[in-house]
Design a protein around this nucleic acid. Structure first.
Length: 591
RNA sequence: GGUUCCGUAGCUCAGUUGGAUAGAGCAACAGAUUUCUAAUCUGUGGGUCAUAGGUUCGAAUCCUAUCGGGAUCACCA
């Protein structure tokens, strides 16, 4: 039953009968300072009817009282008609929620969506920026799945190219046969070490050349180590045995490292694409575009598209020598994804530095008449900056993902042990909890902010465990579970059907919020916005904690009230668990 | 310079299909625990919603301009 829709239609009828007007009715939640749940704004009618807001409000309010059993009373403040639903309405909603274990699950949409995220380069380990990407992608996938879509999580690994050759070359030159085992480094960190080593050697060579009087631009192009890297790339492309063997060896190390990180942070994929397999795709699409006249060729044989009508520029899609550029392979990969899964939609979780690239990509797909073009969406997110500015892998000024997670776990352990509430935990159980809390704090920190906003991370201030945080919500869940355990130990059975009696305001607030879950899910799905879910969970947890301070469950003497509260808090716990699950955050039974 | 995103409390952020006195957390201060977990709750102080115009009964929200910051504008990916 949808209370809001019912009230809207009754107000619509009231205005028809009282004034003969056809109005689309909008309701908003009543502000906390006033009594009521929904508010109808009268102002728009004032002008048309030439009556005072009070007169109109009273007329509509009285109409609702006598024509709708849902409304108990109303009040008018300025031009706002605040409506107070009858307690029976809340019981109706509450009973319905209790009797539907799937509450909040949206109906199947019979559409499928691909969410591509993570998409790392295999020349360095993951950093904080990648974490934002991973958590966003994983959460959006969860949200869409809960919203009734079939979801395929995919990852496109950038495992080839000049930057990969840089790590390989530096390893070849300076590595002395080092391995993850011999160095004790995770494979991705080992590769990253040589990526940094390349850059250092390269800079030294450039400096030397500049001192010899060669202009910097030219020095950068002619530095021997850079030349060597380029030669290595050519060898890779021609399938040189030695280069390929090195590439396979180092990539295997990196993949092992990535998989460990993915496992720790709890993300996964249904399909992995490798650029080494897809980088040649797209040339046939260039042919197609040329013959259909969407693309054109210049004298030097290079192929272009003119997107000035779309407010963009002219864009190269194939080099004069017939080799691919970035967009060429993305054209091919995009076609491949839709061919593989026949999705209705495809989402790319990629940082905002590629906004322009995706505008171009989607515009080209539209010009080429791809039926899926309108279903393409770039979920763009802002960079995670440090107080010192941008993170740069080459210069080593990054917050490493593995290190950060390890630090968070250590902080979680310290914070938890200080409180002494889990002294009876087995060690394994305790470690599991520390990890859960650490990742809860980290994921919530990165997901509560709107994706497109850039955000600041200050390593000097650790991520909070109090206030508007993941652990606050996890704690709330544990608190509820503690009461439920107590009830269970006393043999209480949770009822799922309640007869009308008096409700406290904070109980109504909780019923209202739990019932809002499906609206929140829908909004989050439509906007690809985990932050909406995060803020909702916080609101629900906060409201529960007020309830907790104000009312007692197990010490309530009125049996009917006690039983209702038990069922209510179970519903709250389930909803928190579900909501946090959408963010990829687990909630503990105890903490 | 062109395009684009952002600018809300000391700090980090909510709030934008236009509605009431702009909300949280952190930090500061004052309280609450013989009572279901104080990682909690209650309260106090803190605002030119970047600035200036415009539209509207009504603007943080929409429009225009300006200022400040980010991103991008490669035959790199």
């Amino acid at each position: 039953m949808d209370l809001e829709l019912n009230i809207k239609s009754t107000i619509k009828k009231a205005i028809q009968e009282l004034y003969g007007l056809e109005e689309e009715i909008q309701l908003q939640p009543t502000r906390k300072d006033f009594e009521g749940t929904y508010t109808f704004v009268i102002f728009p009618l004032v002008k048309q009817l030439k009556k005072s807001p009070a007169d109109i409000g009273t007329a509509i309010g009285d109409y609702l009282i006598s024509n709708s059993p849902d409304i108990k009373k109303y009040n008018i403040v300025q031009g706002f008609l605040n409506l107070v639903p009858d307690d029976s309405v809340w019981f109706g909603i509450f009973n319905a929620l209790l009797q539907n274990p799937d509450h909040g699950k949206l109906t199947a949409k019979n559409e499928s969506v691909m969410v591509e995220y993570s998409s790392p380069n295999t020349n360095k380990p993951l950093h904080l920026g990648h974490l934002r990407n991973n958590f966003l992608g994983y959460s959006v996938a969860n949200i869409l799945e809960a919203s009734g879509y079939e979801v395929i999580k995919s990852c496109l690994i950038n495992d080839r190219g000049i930057h990969i050759c840089k790590s390989m070359l530096a390893y070849q030159k300076f590595g002395n046969g080092e391995t993850p085992e011999s160095s004790g480094l995770k494979g991705d960190h080992l590769a990253g070490k040589y990526y940094v080593a390349f850059d250092r050697a390269y800079k030294t060579e450039v400096d030397v050349l500049v001192q010899q009087g060669i202009p910097e631009d030219e020095a950068k192009k002619t530095a021997p180590i850079m030349k060597e890297a380029q030669e290595m790339l050519l060898k890779w492309e021609s399938g040189d045995d030695e280069v390929i063997a090195l590439w396979k060896k180092m990539n295997a190390w990196v993949f092992a490292g990535f998989n460990e990180t993915y496992k720790t942070i709890g993300v996964s994929f249904d399909k992995t694409y490798y650029e080494s397999n897809t980088y040649l795709l797209g040339k046939d699409i260039v042919e197609e575009g040329l013959s259909s006249g969407v693309f054109y060729q210049k004298d030097d044989k290079s192929v272009w598209i003119d997107l000035t009508h779309e407010g963009l520029d002219q864009k190269l899609v194939l080099r004069g020598d017939g080799t691919s550029v970035y967009i060429t392979q993305d054209l091919g990969t995009t076609d491949l994804k839709f061919k593989d899964f026949s999705n209705n939609r495809s989402i790319w979780v990629v940082g905002n530095e590629q906004d322009y690239h995706f505008q171009v990509l989607f515009a080209i797909m539209k010009r080429l008449g791809r039926s899926y073009a309108d279903g393409c969406y770039h979920l763009s997110y802002g960079m995670v900056d440090l107080p010192s500015g941008k993170m740069k892998s080459r210069e080593g000024t990054v917050v490493d993902a593995d290190e950060l997670v390890a630090e968070m776990i250590a902080t979680a352990e310290q914070t938890t042990r200080e409180r002494g509430k889990i002294d009876d935990f087995e060690e394994e159980e305790a470690q599991k909890l520390f990890k859960m809390l650490a990742l809860g704090a980290l994921k919530y920190f990165l997901l509560k902010v709107e994706p497109k906003k850039r955000m600041l991370f200050n390593p000097a201030e650790s991520i909070d465990f109090q206030g508007n945080t993941g652990p606050f919500i996890q704690y709330t869940h544990a608190r509820i579970k503690s009461i439920l355990r107590k009830a269970e130990s006393q043999g209480a059975q949770l009822k799922s059907e309640f007869a009308l009696h008096e409700l406290a305001q904070v109980e109504i607030d909780l019923i209202y919020l739990v019932n809002e879950y499906h609206n929140i899910l829908e909004k989050a799905g439509n906007d690809y916005a985990p932050s909406v879910v995060a803020n909702y969970c916080y609101d629900l947890a906060k409201t529960f904690n007020s309830f907790y301070a104000e009312l007692s469950v197990m010490n309530e003497e009125d049996t009917a009230k006690k039983e209702l509260r038990l069922s209510l808090i179970r519903l709250v716990a389930d909803t928190l668990k579900k909501g946090m699950g959408l963010l990829g955050i687990e909630v503990p039974e105890r903490m």
